[in-house]
Design a binder for these strands. Structure first.
Lengths: 234, 234
DNA sequence: TGTATTTTTCTTGTCGACAAGTAAAATACA
DNA sequence: TGTATTTTACTTGTCGACAAGAAAAATACA
């Protein structure tokens, strides 16, 4: 039974290997299961996934293209480090994309987009209630990604997704050490944003998106400052 | 002499093959030497560059990551087509990035950035004078990319580069059929932008960047409309 | 003991070959 | 002649093996 079901070698469809490796490594990187700077070994991955190095390599090339891993030619490849010194450039880009995607969603959304957005909104509220930090991070990102999709500008959406990914890493960094809650206020702000989008109120969506983004940035900076303080104290 | 110098097979350094293929294909795609939708054959490229399919493949994966080629699994891979229907999303993103990068350059540039920007400005003026459409397109993109670099936000810079690439393709599309000149006005606007950046005048840089971008968008839309008119007439 | 040089080891980059999957061509059939 | 089915041809995806480059280890030398 288990023999035929989970056959040890190959029961994989032809191009699915790379996607599987790509998705899994991506998640492990974003959840900090693979620490920034930690080495990535091709043969090790090949053994782990029971496939040759070729598809592994393809997945790594893709991850490198998105800046999630760094490659030193002829030497090693490792998980991209988090650039604390230039964190402000990240915040700048994040705030602007929150604004733009929310505004565009108010302008371009279609009726069928709203239930999807509301669904993630409820997931987020549930995550807040349960106090599951990882779920908060993930559902918040999904909520805003859905809004961006409704804005229907693939250039903004792809940059925004990249920023949300990077944000997932950064938040994970803090929420693994400190049991901190996202304030309830964020849930209310999400509700306001949905209302502005539904009403097609561009200016309100813009303003709320900006304010919400700045709240989140402040929250992260507060954690950042406190962590530094503790680090110095220890 | 020529035998040892240009030895027919391998005198290539170890990781340089992919880069060469990547750069060359990228240029051919952006200059429309490879038409959108035209097929890309791996073995053909392997023969052309006298290397195995592996490095070719890696270059293609990278190009696919940047959206320059589309891959149909198990079937074919071809040059990405230009999406005329959603051109406005491209223009929206382009205008915003012009604004943001120009503003940030006014804020964050260092003294050593200015000569580089001025250099591309002169190249652009020369291209306008000589009437070389391709050089106009290339030097204009280089000018604004340099400004973006001076703004020192890698997230904006990378999106902006992607947009400038796509713009290079679109402009190339029109300037191959119509011998049109970029107006002299663009040169003057470039000079104003440099002045605003040098003076660290954020608001002026923002305003000029936006106005300049909208000028360019208008220019393209004018060509676009005229082409459609001609297409209908024929 | 400390430094320079050689050797070894380990990782990545490239290759040629084969297998899987798809589209086109050829064949069979009505 | 027109359609369904089989066969062929061609392209991509994967594999195992080998070669090049760089770091680490070992050796030689002062």
């Amino acid at each position: 039974m288990t023999d035929t079901d989970s056959s040890p070698t190959l029961e994989r469809k032809r191009g699915s290997g790379v996607k599987m490796v790509y998705d899994l490594l991506r998640d492990e990187i974003l959840d900090l299961e693979l620490a920034p700077g930690s080495p990535i070994d091709e043969v090790q991955l090949a053994e782990r996934f029971k496939m040759s190095r070729t598809p592994i390599r393809e997945a790594l090339v893709r991850l490198a293209g998105e800046g999630l891993i760094d490659t030193l030619p002829n030497r090693s490849t490792m998980v991209a480090s988090i650039d604390f010194l230039n964190m402000h450039t990240f915040f700048d880009a994040l705030v602007l994309m929150y604004r733009v995607t929310t505004r565009l969603a108010a302008q371009n959304h279609r009726p069928e987009d709203l239930p999807i957005i509301r669904g993630f909104h409820e997931d987020y509220a549930a995550a807040i209630k349960s106090g599951d930090a990882l779920a908060m991070i993930a559902t918040n990102a999904a909520f805003h990604a859905a809004i961006a999709e409704a804005g229907r500008n693939p250039y903004f959406t792809s940059l925004f997704r990249r920023l949300l990914d990077e944000g997932r890493r950064i938040l994970r960094l803090y929420y693994q050490s400190y049991e901190e809650q996202f304030p309830q206020r964020f849930v209310d702000e999400h509700a306001e944003i949905i209302a502005a989008i539904t009403a097609r109120d561009l200016e309100a969506a813009d303003r709320l998106g900006k304010a919400h983004a700045e709240q989140i940035v402040q929250q992260v900076q507060k954690l950042f400052a406190r962590k530094n303080q503790l680090d110095i104290a220890l």
